[in-house]
Design a protein around this nucleic acid. Structure first.
Ligand SMILES: [Zn+2]
Ligand SMILES: [Zn+2]
Ligand SMILES: [Zn+2]
Ligand SMILES: [Zn+2]
Lengths: 133, 133
DNA sequence: CGCGCAATGTTATATAGTAACGTAATCGCA
DNA sequence: TGCGATTACGTTACTATATAACATTGCGCG
């Protein structure tokens, strides 16, 4: 059975949903340790990996961190816009870009399986805040 | 003077150019230790970071590894196609995709500074090898 | 029951990256 | 040239991220 595993996944998802920025596996670990003293890294990583497979959580490769999927629509490849000022991450879904991407890199015979698209920059509110000052 | 720093950059670039797959900073470290016993991680990371800024080396975020720029044209943002079979990485330059990407994520007011586009999959030769068997 | 399998827990370790500080080279300027 | 300020570099130690390996649990089934 996997009731325990599912329990960890649910707990971790709750932790991730309390944040609006990506957090590291070890941040999750520390948080869960407040209530479950004996939890250890492999448990966290197993659950995060299951959640990622199920599309409930996205791994932010360029930050080695994780964020709950915000776009309702799971099992998609999304574009992550990461504000380097406030840390906020926004998800966009753009099938056309994925298609163009496939066609560009497919020219050489490469067949894509997983896309990582992460854009670092400044979000709207941080941008206007900086423009003011 | 920064002749020492430039020397490390040159040595590291030589190491990276001997491989056709991304290698980790610590792989570089081990290799250089064969000839320079006392070299240490910060030296490697400083040089890698300078090389990355200069566009001579790309950091593969989804592998925590580095590869020498293969496309001659430095200081560009490139799309990396990573074969999960043989590890080979191919670079593509596609300004149109970057433009589309900016326009999609710009709708919400986000202004992009750095793009990370990495596609995992199977390269042409590994694909045909698998199709045969 | 009692064997076999798969999921989970546990310990330890591997891998990746950086802070902090001292020293040495370089620059700005009289 | 002399000399303080500044920056680059080396070195030590440490923090952060991730996984290997093995023990244990609990369930399915004859
Ligand atoms: Zn999502
Ligand atoms: Zn912001
Ligand atoms: Zn390149
Ligand atoms: Zn291949």
């Amino acid at each position: 059975m996997n009731t325990r595993g599912e329990m960890w996944q649910a707990e971790i998802l709750r932790v991730l949903n309390r944040h609006h920025t990506p957090i590291s596996a070890y941040d999750v670990l520390e948080t869960l340790r407040e209530t479950h003293e004996k939890i250890s890294p492999p448990t966290i990583y197993r659950a995060l990996s299951a959640l990622t497979k199920r599309g409930r959580v996205h791994r932010v490769e360029s930050l080695n961190a994780f964020i709950a999927c915000q776009c309702g629509q799971h099992q998609h490849t999304s574009i992550l816009s990461i504000c380097e000022d406030c840390g906020a991450v926004e998800e966009s879904v753009a099938p056309k870009i994925l298609k163009d991407l496939s066609s560009v890199i497919g020219k050489s015979g490469f067949s894509p399986m997983r896309h990582v698209i992460e854009v670092h920059g400044t979000c709207a509110s941080c941008g206007s805040r900086k423009a003011q000052s």
